[in-house]
Design a protein around this nucleic acid. Structure first.
Lengths: 235, 235
DNA sequence: CCAAAAGTGTTGCCGGTACACCCATGG
DNA sequence: CCATGGGTGTACCGGCAACACTTTTGG
């Protein structure tokens, strides 16, 4: 079971919000970038923030920042995620380490990607950052070549869905097979056959019918399933 | 919870000597580690060096070192590879970014893995470093928890072999199917059926018969093949 | 009764695996 | 003539893709 908390520590140390301020000039800095995915309105979306300081002030970027010497990259990513969304204890995985993203300084950026269930998020309401969920079709131009990071994350997620149970991180504990299918379709980017999808999921033995039924609209109430394991598992 | 296949242990990267490195004490250093694989005597081996300075002086470690602020991690990896083996222009891919490998200093280690064809190597003859090819069954204890890095690299290589043509990097341009099969067996760690292996490889359309034949022992000369593409390609 | 979504089987194809014998060569 | 490795085919099985209609419900 995934516990999710909403507490956030304001002004936590470790990341300088604005790459460009501290860190000795000439030194090789280490930054962290977190791609936070969620499903909203049956669409795959990522969390972006608006940069409030140079360089690239005013453009959209992925959450992240420079790393203080006292924090591990993974811890920084976890903290960033918590600060932005209020969730912790969710799927988080290292993605890739980029260099040369920021033309204005020499830095190495360790990127992570996280999956959060959309309605457990309590988004930070910040005038300064204006965090927003953005659908991945039209992300528009991003700061620091973050398109590359985003594209890479998306590709990895797509692949991961095929051979692991990570989808549990994007859905509430109980859900219908149709809902699950829409998640797969949103991430895979193409429609799936209903019967084949159901057969496949059920034969994987990663789903359990709960006996409960969802009664959501003007139609037949659907069986609710849950994942047998809510820990990342490879098939 | 972090979905990452490797449990964190205290430890460190192969921080060996890199010219022009003098990270200020207390600063977060960036290191590079390169896992260089080759096939020798039908065995998968990795290149190790003996540390000639503290910490962990005298123990075996993967090649690598602290990064000068003027060098990109990938360039540093390429350079390391060249210095140790004399080869360039081979398969090299980023692996993972570790932190906390070296208990004696705060550092982040960006790791890479490379595949080299064994007889194109001109190993550096160094009293100080004593570079050596070590079979992966018995790597013995390594400095800085480099076992973790090595194990990860090995796993990645195994997976990669299944869905890409990277094997070309481990073999000379022309080779027999039996030789190729031994490479797959060495990396996969289990014997393969000859007929199935041949059918599979040929049906992938990544091999071309050259018409030439290898006459190597007291047996029937074998057809020599080559890869249709010597660029990393996914099936 | 209508709209909306839930639910349900069969068939063909393809890739993977198991399995055993003959052939060409050099010594 | 013998030892060594090269080279070849078939049968079964399981997963994947294509494909359409009936049922339940709320309004």
């Amino acid at each position: 079971m995934v516990a999710q908390g909403y507490r956030r520590k304001p002004g936590a140390p470790g990341l300088t919000h604005v790459p460009g301020t501290d860190a000795p000039p000439g030194a090789l800095a280490v930054a962290v970038i977190v791609v936070i995915f969620t499903i909203e309105d049956d669409q795959l979306k990522a969390l972006l923030v608006r940069r409030s300081a140079p360089p690239e002030e005013g453009t959209w970027a992925l959450p992240g920042g420079l790393l203080a010497t006292t924090e591990e990259p993974e811890a920084a990513a976890t903290r960033k995620l918590l600060e932005e969304t209020g969730v912790s204890d969710v799927f988080l995985e290292q993605l890739y380490t980029f260099s040369g993203l920021d033309a204005t300084r020499r830095a190495v950026a360790v990127s992570y990607f996280a999956l959060v269930q959309h309605d457990s998020v309590r988004m930070r309401a910040s005038e300064e950052w204006q965090p927003a969920w953005v659908a991945l079709d039209d992300p528009g131009p991003l700061a620091f070549n973050n398109e590359r990071v985003l594209g890479y994350a998306r590709e990895r997620l797509r692949a991961k869905l095929e051979y692991s149970n990570v989808a549990y991180s994007l859905l509430p504990q109980r859900f219908t097979l149709s809902r699950l299918q829409r998640v797969y379709e949103a991430i895979g980017g193409r429609p799936l056959d209903k019967r084949n999808f159901r057969r496949r999921m059920l034969s994987l033995r990663i789903l359990q019918p709960t006996g409960l039924r969802a009664r959501e609209g003007a139609h037949r109430p659907a069986q609710l399933y849950e994942f047998t394991s809510r820990v990342p598992t490879v098939f």
